[in-house]
Each structure stands twice: as structure tokens, then as C-alpha cells.
Design a protein around this nucleic acid. Structure first.
Lengths: 233, 233, 233, 233
DNA sequence: AATGAATGAGCCTTCATTCAT
DNA sequence: GATGAATGAAGGCTCATTCAT
């Protein structure tokens, strides 16, 4: 560590600049998205030269992927999907933890929100960076949820009911960053910051559990005319 | 074909070009978003001149607003929020219709999907065009839903429970276009086209109604005290 | 032609700008080569905007190919390989014409010299544009020369002697643009402009014809010891 | 490997790095030319730091000049213009040696080819480095050739016939690196490596000697009147 | 003596917009 | 009324060079 003076420039400065670029890029990408973000603005915020991005990351796209990876890692380190709930806890409690951690990741103050915002954009306009993320982080999370829901509904994880209920649970969570804009316009009385996480998480968990506990048992869940006809039999 | 242009003005050709620009722009904006869309590509698809957009609409942004307004109008004409359910039908049936019309707007084959796709993008990156849309179309829809949910839950439309339940219902609907990308990656077995509307609408309505019918009655709906209480057991 | 006023901008202006860009680009590419040439400089010389190259040709590379094609065409239209020598003329006379036209192409005052200079650069650092040129123009020329030389040497066009003699003839021609720089440094008394074409062409034709008429007949054309042995005979 | 750098200066390491830079730069300059070569690539190949070029040579251009000087020296040490032919040998034999050494310098496997390739580029796009080279090495070579040719033609070295014949001889040699690209395209059957030196040298010497021995004696060697006159014969 | 992080000028390209016709 | 040639600002990226260490 003290040898650095022997070998020319300061490697710490290198990492520091790199970190500041990641930081600045996180903000810019979250605010305006990949395409709208300019390398110039990122470098300006990082207090670095226009060429810094290319020097440290090769190109804008690689920087983006790095930011996404970085913020995802921090988000899941700080708020793991089950939030420390013991392994033998009942599935209902695990589901509550799942929902809560999801919202905490969305509403966290600070650089972790980048993750949520960048993910929102990835949904609408996926970049190559999404695939790696899906494989290593999102797929396991989806499988976890599927297992919990199957247990609560007491049926196979491959049951259609399970899949659709997973969608119902997750949709209520992601709603708060996908539709933030719309919520504040249509329901100005709804606050949207870290202070409401428990309120929202509580509602989503209660709503979903109540639904799953009392979901009517359908034999043939498809299309109405058919339902009517078949029901008569 | 356009020899008429030789003999002075032709108001029909004028309107026709304008219509084709709207049509072409709808496709392009839905596919790649506002920023990524190029005026050149839109004009090319419309079979019009590069300058046509500026001539007919002033600038790219105005064209965008016009497309949004236009496609919204068509979407709600074809699929009104209550889908012709009689005014004296029970709120549960109205809710089913509401959800179904929502999904039909999303999954409609043809130019109406533009509306859904453009709305997805508006959520993430609102343009000025959103505000007019909210005032004239979305606010009434939100109020309608709020009323239905209040009736089902049997409490005041201003109750927090109502608001959060509205979010729960809507979130399950919008999920299918916001998260389309993610769904197809994580649940490849889930089809996502017009053929699944009844399946999804059925599930969302059942799920939401079951939830609302059995939502536990909380005095203190927020926060940890509740969790703490459970823990004591 | 008079209808143009009906359809907006002036198409003649389009072609004129295009022509000026070709003209300007010819000069710049010939002077400094493809890589060193800047689009800015080309546009500046053409009195056009920086974006003009991209507008008219798509990109720098296409412009380059176009310039090469254009100047090649002009060069061979003005100075065809046989220069109008009658088809039944003796091969010696045709060879003279061939050499003369080659040098005229090199030393022509004006935009045709671009061709020569650009070709010199292509030899050292070929771009993709070269292949098309070879196929459509240079290969026929090579075949023509091969035929002439075979006739003069009175043997098969596939004979090695023919091929090497072709090289000898052509090399003496191309020398004057490949090595112009060196010639003016080492032999400052040698003028190098259009006025010396006849002098040089005369020499090259005489030199080459004398050589071919008296080329010793070799059985085994390799390696010195053999030469030494032959000398003794 | 370089722990010595920890204990102060090491003049050997200094020279070694310098040598490796020259070596690496030779390869790069020969392959892609001065402009296309990047300092980074040269340093990478030399296993040295990005700043090494500037540190050891001041700038890229000086490095280039140094490489040219260096490779020229090696080329002429290994293949001197007369290749050890005795001073009293007949001029014809000296000419053969001259041609052969020229081709050997071009086709040598290894770092000597750099010289040829760099020279090709210098012809087309001379840098400042050329002048020094001309003065100290190329001028003497030109004078040597001029003397040989004058002797063979039996006239004054200042005679135009001598000068033009020098061009004829040299042009046939340089052809094989200037036009390598074109030769392989138009005459794919022609091999171009060290193994063909004797074949080519033999042809060039025979061709040129035959030509010079039988060059017609012209009184007025320029311009068409002569051609007309000849035609009358 | 030697390093490597950082720079800034400059390149090609894209695109919404303008304006004479 | 409508065109399309032309614009200029801006974007991503490259590269020789510098300078503190």
C-alpha cells in the first residue's frame, strides 16, 4: 500500500475517480435513462474529464451495466428478500418480509433508489444489461416467491393460480415506482417516501394474504362464455 | 397520384397526410419512445416529407401530444371503463368490467396498444402531454374506481383503505404492460396476448374481490407495533 | 425541369452541392489520404455544412468510394488503355499506347490526378473500395497487357516470362506516382509534369520493347550459379 | 522481474525498454503506418508504460524517425547495395547484385521488412524523417546506380538516357512492395516471399540488361514528331 | 528513473429544425 | 400548401500528451 509511490501515479486516485463516476452515473441514468444521459454530464458531476468514462469503463454502455450491477448488489445486500426472517417461519410471515424488503429497496433514500429507477426503465426499454441481472438475481427471487405462494395456496408451484398470484403480489410492489408519477397526480394525498413503507407493505401483505386465503376454487378458469356454459354442467 | 398538388390547395390531401403522420408516429413512439423516435423515420413511414412533422404539428413534441390524445380517445371509445355494464349492476360486477376493459386496452391488437405502450413510457419519463390526459380522462377513471371500491369495502371514498385497495387493483392491471419484458423472461410459460385477457381479468377480479371482502379490520394499519404484537404470540 | 419550383427545394442545388463535395473530397483524399482527411475540411472546401457529407453520402467511407469510382471513370474515359489505336495495329504499337495512356492518367492536370494519388494510397493501405475497382477496371487492363506481352514474346499468356514482363512494364509506369517524392529529391533535374509524358512514355516503351525482343531464353531461371554457368557458355 | 526499479536507477533496464520500444514500434509502423499507429499499442507490445514513448523519445514523431533510421541501418548492414561483389567486377554483375540486394531488403523475413514497408509509406506520405535518410543513404545509392548504368550504356552519367534507365531499373524493384496488394489481387498465382527473390532478381537483371544493350539510339527523344518519324520507317 | 491516471482537442456522426422555392 | 436541401448543435469516442508521484 505504501509501495504505490514507487510506481508512479496513485492507484487510490484511480479507484476514487472510478467510484465518483459510478456515483454520478447512477444519478444521471436514474434521472434520465440510458439514452438521454450524456457522458459529458456524468463526467461533469464526477468532476472528471470528458474522456474519463472511456478511460475507466471503455464506453457508456459498459458504465451503465456496471452501475446497474453495482446498485443491485448494494440494494440486495442492504435489503435481502426475506429480511432475516428465520427459515422456519410460516410462509405468511416470509411473504410479509418479501413485500417489505421490496418496498424498502424502492423507497430507500440514497443511491439504492437508482436501482429501482433503472429497473423501471429496463422494463420499458431493456438494454443488454438486463439479462445478466435476471439470471443471477431476479430468477432466484421469482422462484422464492413462487415457493411461498404455493405453500400458502397449498398447491403445486406450477399451478396457474400460483403464477397469477405471484404476479398479483409483485405488481402491487413495483407499482410504487413504475407509477409514482401517476400516483402523485391522481392521489396527491398519498405520500411517497421511506416513511410510508410500513403502511404500504402492511396493506399489500394483508390484501394479498386475504385474497389467497379466500380465492374461490375454480375448476376451469378460462374465458367467460365457456365458464357460464361449463358451470351449468 | 398527387397531381392535385399541381393545381393549388387540396384540403383532403392535407388531412390525409396529417392522419398518416399520426398513424406512423403512433407506431414509432410506441416502439422506441419519444426520444429514440426520429422525425425522419416517422415521415418515412407516413410516406411524407422530412419537414411534414414540423409543417403539420409545429414540432416533434406537439406531434407526440397529439398522438397520445388521439390514441387515448380511440382506446376509451372502443373499451369504455365499465364496458356497458348497466348502471344498477352490483359494484362487484362493475369492478370486473373495469378490470377487463383495462386489460383489453392493453392487449388490443392494433393501434390501440400504442396507448398502453406510450403510457408505460409516460410513467417512467413523463412529458408535458401527460397532464392534459390526467385531467380529462384519468382522474374521472380514478374517481370511478374509488367509488366502486368504497362501495365494496363499505366505507368512505376518502378512507386510506380505499385508496390503497385502488392501488392494488390498478397495479395488477398495469403490471402486464409495464413488466411484460420481465414476465416473459421469468415466466416464459405465460402467454401475453389478446387471448389471455379473460384469464387475467378473471384472476385479478377474483383476487381483488376476495381480498376486499376479507381484509382484516385494522385500527392501526401502519407499522411495526402490529408486527411486534404478532411476535409476542 | 421547370416543375422543380412546384416541389419545394431545388434539386439542381442538391446535385451541385454533391458535385462540389466530390470535388473537394477528391482534393483532400488525394492530398492526405482517407484517414487523415477530415469531413470538416472537405465541407469547408465545398462551402458546405459539416453535416453535408453525411447528408449526401451517408458517411465518410461511402464518399471516399464514390470519389474513387468517379475519378477512375473520368480517368479512363479521357485516357482509355489503348488510346484509340486501331484493333489491327501491331502489338508493339498497342503497348506504346498502353504505356502512354498510363502516364497521361498519372500526369493529367486536374481532378484526374486524384485517381493516381488515391490509387497510390490504396496500394499501401487498401480500403474496401479497392476490390470493386479491381474487378471492374483493373483486371481487364491486366488481361489486356498480358495478351500484348504474350504476343510480343510469342508465348503463352500463362508463361512466367509474360507475367514478369508485365510487372516490368507496369512498374516503370506506376513508379512515377509512387515514387514522385523520391525522384524529386534524388534527381531534382527531372521535371515531373504533363510536359514530360511523351519523354517518359517513349523511354518506357523503347526500354521494354528492347528488353522483350532480346530477353535471353532461359531453361532454368533461378539462382546465380546457374547464371554464372550460362555466362561461360 | 523489475524489482531493480525499487533500488534506484538501472541504466540497463533503461536501454532495454528503449530497445523494445524500437522493436515494437517497427512492427506497428510497418503494419499500419505512422498516423494509424497508436502510442498505446506500441507500448503494450513493448510491455512498457503508456508514457514510455514520450519519456524515451519525446514524442511519437521522433520515435518514428528513430525507427526508420534504425531499420535502415540494419537493412543496409545485412544487404549492402553491391552484396560483396568485387570492385573490379564488370558493371553488369554489379547491377545484378544491386537488384538482388534491393529485393532481399524487401523480402527479408523479420524486422528488416519494416524498412521496406515504412519506405513505401514514406513515398506516398513523406514525413520529416525522410530527408535525413535521403542525404545519408539513398543519394549515394542513386549515384552508385547512375554510375553503373552510365558504364553499361557507355555514356555520361548526366545523360537523360542514364537517368531514365535508372528509373526503369529501380522501378522494377520497388514495384514488389509498393504494389504487393495489387499483384496478389491481379496475379494470385505469383508468390511474394523470400523464396522468389532469386527468380525476380534474375528477371529484372536480364530484362534491364537486355533493354540497355539494345536501346535504340535516339537523337530527339521527346514528343510525337519522333513517333511520327519512327512510324515512317 | 519511470509510471499511469487524467486531460482536452478533435473526429465522425445524428437529428430536429429552418427556409427558399 | 408542401417540399427537401441544408444547417448547427450536440453526442460518443479516440489518442497523444502531461504531470504528480
Amino acid at each position: 500500500m505504501n509501495l504505490k509511490s514507487l510506481s508512479g501515479a496513485d492507484p487510490l486516485a484511480h479507484d476514487e475517480t472510478r467510484r465518483q463516476l459510478l456515483e454520478a452515473a447512477g444519478g444521471v441514468f436514474a434521472e434520465v435513462g440510458f439514452r438521454n444521459a450524456t457522458v459529458r454530464e456524468i463526467c461533469r458531476r464526477a468532476g472528471a474529464n470528458v474522456a474519463a468514462v472511456n478511460y475507466h469503463f471503455g464506453d457508456k454502455e459498459t458504465l451503465y451495466a456496471e452501475v446497474l450491477r453495482h446498485s443491485q448488489q448494494r440494494a440486495f445486500e442492504k435489503y435481502p428478500p426475506l429480511m432475516g426472517v428465520p427459515a422456519d417461519a410460516p410462509p405468511e410471515e416470509k411473504l410479509r418480509a418479501f413485500v417489505r424488503s421490496f418496498l424498502l429497496r424502492i423507497f430507500d433514500d440514497g443511491s439504492i433508489t437508482w436501482f429501482g429507477k433503472m429497473m423501471s426503465r429496463e422494463m420499458v426499454e431493456p438494454t443488454g444489461a438486463l439479462d445478466a441481472l435476471v439470471a443471477e438475481r431476479l430468477q432466484p427471487m421469482a422462484d422464492l416467491l413462487r415457493g411461498l405462494v404455493a405453500e400458502i395456496l397449498d398447491c403445486s408451484p406450477d399451478d396457474e393460480k400460483v403464477r397469477l398470484s405471484c404476479f398479483s403480489v409483485v405488481s402491487q410492489c413495483v407499482f410504487y415506482h413504475h407509477c409514482r408519477t401517476m400516483i402523485t397526480r391522481l392521489f396527491p394525498e398519498q405520500r411517497l417516501d421511506a416513511s410510508v413503507v410500513e403502511q404500504l407493505a402492511g396493506h399489500i401483505a394483508r390484501f394479498s394474504l386475504a385474497a389467497m386465503k379466500h380465492l374461490p376454487d375454480l375448476k376451469t378458469p378460462r374465458s367467460k362464455p365457456v365458464l357460464a356454459a361449463r358451470r351449468r354442467r
